[in-house]
Amino acid sequence: MGFPTQTDDAIAFTPLDVQALRHTRDLIDLGILGPDRQAALVRTWGRSYARLAEWQATLLTSRALESDADPADTLAQLTQEVLPRVEALQSYVWRRHLVSAGARMLAVETPGSPVVRQAVVFVDIVGYTSRSKALSEAELVDWLEHFESETLGLVVDRGGRIIKNIGDEVLVVADDVTDAAEIALTMTSRGSDEDDRFPEVRAGIAFGPVVTRLGDVFGPTVNIASRLTALARPGTVLIDQGAYERLSGRVHAEDADGQAPHGQAPDGQAEGEAGGSPYTFRRMRRVSVKGYSRLGAWALRRPRQGRGLEPGAGR
């Protein structure tokens, strides 16, 4: 669970630890926890609850220090009053997410498979380092809180799911590549609006097979989305071949299921709108990035009213 190893004579455990072992044995006997899942599950629980506990402890400690009474006594009283309510709310949120995740997994073509076809989106804040240097700690926290809160609303409204925030970057997945496109385009549009507090961002989208494990995602599709984000200019969205084919409707006959080889972009695609697609696409020059010698990409845009492509974006 992430705690240091104790010596044999250290008093570090309680009857609750014994009960936890009994529950674990029950799950093993029921066939839920196999040998290959036990350690990984415990590590995931440990990491997730460690972060949650740090945040909750900070809240309680800050409240205790604001009191005129002894901080230790105030903290003990707050803990007694607050923890049962927090525990009940955590159970409520967890159960709601469990129902949602279960329904989503049963809806896929091969329920129980760790591999699903999804759109992966990376969104990166432009100029995060320089901006963070110019802000106080409180201002930086407020800025990031605003970004994360607004991002969550944008993502869930389009049916996407935030996998994790990685510093100044957020990783999102969506079952529908159109939802992924709308998430990325909305975020870059807001970031380009000088009157909007939302920071300037750039994004990369890839569509293809994704390996899911303990709430995280892995595989070439994730790697390509990350590479595209690093290549994108501020305020732009770059997409890979899989996303391009789904959004444009131009799926090769030999890849009718959309499973085109990653990084292999077809030649001869013209810049402009694809028939029936609400987007415009600009073919980018092939680039060499780590793991992909000739990565193909397209700049994704919404068409401007009464005009063709929006000039100046992408590279």
Rank of each mutant, 00 (worst) to 15 (best):
Phe207Asn: 02
Phe198Lys: 11
Asp195Ala: 15
Glu194Pro: 08
Val211Gln: 06
Ala203Thr: 10
Pro209Leu: 12
Arg213Glu: 15
Asp196His: 08
Val211Asn: 04
Gly208Arg: 08
Glu194Ile: 12
Met187Ser: 05
Arg197Ser: 10
Arg197Met: 06
Thr186Leu: 13
Thr212Lys: 11
Arg190His: 13
Asp216Cys: 07
Thr186Lys: 06
Ser192Val: 00
Pro209Gly: 13
Asp195Pro: 00
Glu200Lys: 10
Ile205Cys: 02
Gly204Met: 04
Arg202Gln: 09
Glu194Thr: 15
Met187Pro: 03
Arg197Phe: 05
Phe198Gln: 10
Ala203Lys: 12
Phe198Cys: 12
Val211Pro: 02
Pro209Trp: 02
Asp196Trp: 08
Val211Leu: 14
Asp196Thr: 10
Gly208Thr: 08
Arg213Asp: 14
Val201Leu: 08
Val211Met: 12
Leu214Arg: 08
Ser192Gly: 11
Thr186Cys: 10
Pro209Thr: 07
Pro209Phe: 05
Thr186Gln: 12
Arg197Ala: 13
Thr186Met: 10
Met187Phe: 02
Thr188Asn: 02
Arg197Trp: 05
Val201Pro: 04
Ser192Gln: 09
Asp193Gln: 02
Asp216Ser: 07
Met187Lys: 02
Met187Thr: 03
Ala203His: 11
Glu194Ala: 15
Asp216Ile: 06
Glu194Arg: 14
Asp193Val: 03
Gly191Asp: 00
Thr186Asp: 15
Ala203Met: 10
Gly191Pro: 00
Phe198Thr: 11
Leu214Ala: 14
Phe198Met: 11
Gly204Trp: 03
Phe198Asn: 10
Asp193Ser: 03
Val210His: 02
Gly191Cys: 02
Thr212Arg: 14
Ala203Leu: 11
Arg202Leu: 05
Arg202Glu: 06
Gly204His: 04
Val211Ser: 01
Arg190Trp: 13
Gly215Tyr: 09
Thr188Ile: 04
Pro209Arg: 12
Asp216Glu: 14
Leu214Thr: 03
Gly204Ile: 01
Ser192Tyr: 04
Thr188Glu: 00
Phe207Met: 04
Asp195Met: 08
Ser192Thr: 04
Thr212Glu: 15
Arg202Cys: 07
Arg197Cys: 05
Asp193Lys: 02
Phe207Val: 02
Arg190Cys: 09
Ile205Met: 03
Leu214Asp: 13
Gly215Asn: 08
Pro209Ser: 15
Leu214Tyr: 14
Ile205Phe: 00
Asp196Phe: 08
Thr212Ile: 11
Ile205Asn: 01
Phe207Trp: 09
Gly215Lys: 09
Glu194Val: 15
Phe198Ser: 12
Pro209Gln: 13
Glu194Trp: 06
Thr212His: 07
Arg202Ile: 05
Arg197Leu: 14
Ser192Lys: 03
